[in-house]
Each structure stands twice: as C-alpha cells, then as structure tokens.
Simulated assay, not measured.
Amino acid sequence: MSSESPMLEAVDLHKRFGELNVLNGVSLSVPRGKVMCLLGPSGSGKSTFLRCINHLERVDGGRIRLDGELIGHVERNGVLHELPGRRIVHQRQRIGMVFQQFNLFPHLTVAQNIALAPTTLRKLSKSAARQRALELLDRVGLRDKIDVYPSALSGGQQQRVAIARALATDPKLMLFDEPTSALDPALVGEVLAVMRDLAADGMTMVVVTHEIGFARDVAHLTAVLDGGEVVETGPSERVLESPGHPRVKEFLKHVR
C-alpha cells in the first residue's frame, strides 16, 4: 500500500446488541505510524469499536480496512461475506490487542505466554520463540522475569508482559483498551512509558484511555465518542485544548 494511505480505516460502522445501538455510523482513519486516542464517557462505544477492528465483534454495517485489506469479510458485488475462521485468525495476527485486564495464562511462565501465538499460529520453533520472547522482554524492561509465573508479577509488570505478548506476532496495528485502568496509580507510569516508546518507534496505535496527559503528549490524533458517535476528532492539541463540541467540553471538564 502507498505510504500515504491510512493504516486503519473504519467507514460507517454500526453495531447493535439486541435493541441497543452501540455504534451509530462511526468513521475514523488512522495514518500509518500515528497514534490515535479514543476518549469519551463510559458506554460511548470505545471498547466495542476496538473489538470490531479485530473482528472479536461482528459489525452490523460498515467496513474496516487494515493496510487496505478488508477485515473479517470479503466483498462480492457490494455485499459483505464473512471470511472463514482460519482467515480471520490469520488477520488477527496483524493486530495486537492489550486489554484492561492482563489476561495472561496463570499456568504458563512469562516466556510461554509470549511464545504461545508464535509457536501455535506461526509454527515457530520453541527455541526461536523463546529468543523472540527475550527480545520483547528487553523492550518492555522485564528480561529477568522470563521464567516466572504471572502471579509473581505486579500489575504493571503483568501488563508489560501482555504488551510483549501482543507484539510477538509483529502486528501492523496495536490496540489498547484502557490498559492502565486496572493498575494502582503508582504502576501506571511504567506501562505508559512502554507505550510511549512504541509510539516513538513508529507503531500505529489506537488507545482507549482516560489518561489525558498521554493523549496530549503522545497521540497525534484524538477522537471523542459519545452515544456511539464520533462527536469530535482531529489533532490532539486542538481537540483537548480548544474543543468545539459542547459535549466534548463537558466531558473534558470532568476528566481533567
């Protein structure tokens, strides 16, 4: 794809859960190598939007493209047809996701957690997968924890391992769903530092967060969702310092 084409493009996404409309025509575009933060009140559709990007939730309307490729579907004569499960799994390898809860397997060591996807999905040898785990643990500052179990780690350390695990398949896009909200305040900084380093290295990222300082200092773009709609989007400095929409002004007043 052209270096000028977006890494992620979501067009007119709709998602319902029963009678509840969670996404109402969400359209967002993230250039390659850039960071977008998603802000908004609880229940505004931010987490659902992330889960639709990697097809953990099926959209009821609209299209998502990663690096120009339609995610979760193939289009024939203007009609979307869902891809087979194995194709969707293959696509998900290109999208790393870090959740609010760390979701590490408690019965596996740190190395085994990180190596699981490369060995099972990419058929990497155990020795090569362990070497990759070492490299990623270096990146998140936890090389000395390679053979410990998650229960021996702090919350911040577990989340850093979760980031390393998400990076293990060399994704083109990283998704973060409130990655610091389950952490003690003293541990938030160590996770944000890893995310700042990823951004500095040019990783394309979409981050759901209430960390306004991170959005202001790191994110190139900020989008604010409310009621399943994008009510404002643009360069982070403008959205955060001079919002135009009254709902955005009210939201920021309460979270600063």
Rank of each mutant, 00 (worst) to 15 (best):
R86H: 15
R86K: 14
R86A: 14
R87C: 13
I88A: 03
R92K: 10
Q93D: 10
Q93C: 13
R94M: 14
R94H: 15
R94C: 10
I95L: 08
G96F: 02
M97S: 04
M97C: 05
F99R: 04
F99C: 02
Q100N: 11
Q100G: 11
Q100E: 14
Q101C: 04
Q101G: 03
F102G: 02
L104H: 02
L104S: 03
F105W: 13
F105Q: 09
H107L: 09
L108R: 14
T109D: 03
T109M: 07
A111Y: 00
A111E: 05
A111F: 01
Q112V: 12
N113T: 06
I114V: 10
I114Q: 08
L116E: 15
L116K: 08
T119R: 14
T120N: 13
T120C: 13
T120F: 11
T120W: 09
R122I: 03
R122F: 08
K123A: 13
L124E: 15
L124P: 07
S125N: 10
S125Q: 09
S125D: 12
K126M: 07
K126Y: 06
S127R: 15
A128Y: 02
A128H: 05
R130E: 05
R130H: 06
Q131P: 00
Q131R: 14
Q131D: 15
Q131N: 14
Q131V: 13
R132Y: 07
R132E: 14
A133F: 00
A133Y: 00
A133M: 06
A133W: 00
E135N: 10
E135Y: 00
L136F: 04
L137T: 01
D138V: 07
V140C: 03
V140A: 03
V140P: 01
G141F: 02
G141E: 05
L142P: 04
L142Q: 08
R143D: 03
D144L: 05
D144W: 05
D144N: 12
D144T: 14
K145S: 12
I146C: 06
D147E: 04
V148Q: 13
V148P: 00
Y149T: 09
P150K: 08
A152L: 12
L153K: 09
L153T: 11
L153Q: 08
L153Y: 08
G155L: 08
G155N: 09
G155P: 08
Q157N: 12
Q158R: 15
Q159F: 07
R160I: 12
V161F: 02
I163Q: 02
R165V: 06
A166N: 06
L167E: 07
A168M: 08
A168W: 02
A168Q: 07
A168C: 11
T169L: 09
T169P: 00
T169R: 00
D170C: 06
D170Q: 11
D170K: 03
P171F: 02
P171D: 13
K172T: 13
L173A: 01
M174W: 03
